[in-house]
C-alpha cells in the first residue's frame, strides 16, 4: 500500500481528503496521470478559510496543513463543491466555468494534480 506523507498536524479538510488520497495512491490508473508531476497544489475552503497543500514529487505525495507562498496551482471552493468533485458528480471545468471553483496558477497541472482527491 502506498503512503501519503503527512507534514505536521492535519486540519479537518486534510483529514477529510486523506483517505481518498490513500486509496488513489494504490490506483495505478490514477497515479499514471500524476506520477511525473512535481509541484504543489493549495486547496482552500473559501467559506472558512481553511487550506491544505498537497505536494507532488514525481510519485511521492505529501499533505500539509495551510498554504504555501507560491504554489504551482491553487483553488478556492466550498466543502460541498469539493465533495461533489471528489465523488465524481462535478466536472472541474464546469465547476470553474460556473464560478463554483476559483483557480490560479498552472491550470493544466492543477487538473492533473486535483485527481488525487477524486474517488470515482
Amino acid at each position: 500500500m502506498g503512503e501519503i506523507r503527512i507534514i505536521g498536524d492535519l486540519n479537518g479538510l486534510g483529514a477529510s481528503l486523506l483517505s481518498i488520497m490513500e486509496q488513489n495512491i494504490d490506483n495505478p490508473e490514477r497515479m499514471k496521470k500524476i506520477r511525473r508531476i512535481s509541484g504543489n497544489l493549495v486547496a482552500t475552503e473559501k467559506n472558512i478559510g481553511v487550506a491544505i497543500t498537497i505536494i507532488f514529487d514525481k510519485g511521492n505525495i505529501s499533505l500539509k496543513d495551510g498554504s504555501v507562498e507560491k504554489p504551482s496551482a491553487a483553488l478556492w471552493t466550498d466543502f460541498d463543491t469539493l465533495a461533489a468533485y471528489s465523488c465524481g458528480e462535478l466536472n472541474p471545468i464546469v465547476g470553474v466555468l460556473k464560478g463554483r471553483i476559483k483557480v490560479r496558477g498552472n491550470l493544466l497541472k492543477l487538473l492533473k494534480m486535483v485527481t488525487i482527491v477524486r474517488s470515482d
Partner: peptide
C-alpha cells in the same frame, strides 16, 4: 457541523472518503 469538521473542532475518525462521497447526507 461540516464547518466544525473542517475546522477540526470535531475530530471524526473513520473513512472520511465516505463522508466526502455522502456529504449531502451528512448535511
Amino acid at each position: 457541523f461540516i464547518e466544525g469538521i473542517v475546522r477540526a473542532l470535531f475530530i471524526m475518525k473513520g473513512d472520511m472518503g465516505k463522508i466526502m462521497r455522502n456529504a449531502k447526507y451528512i448535511r
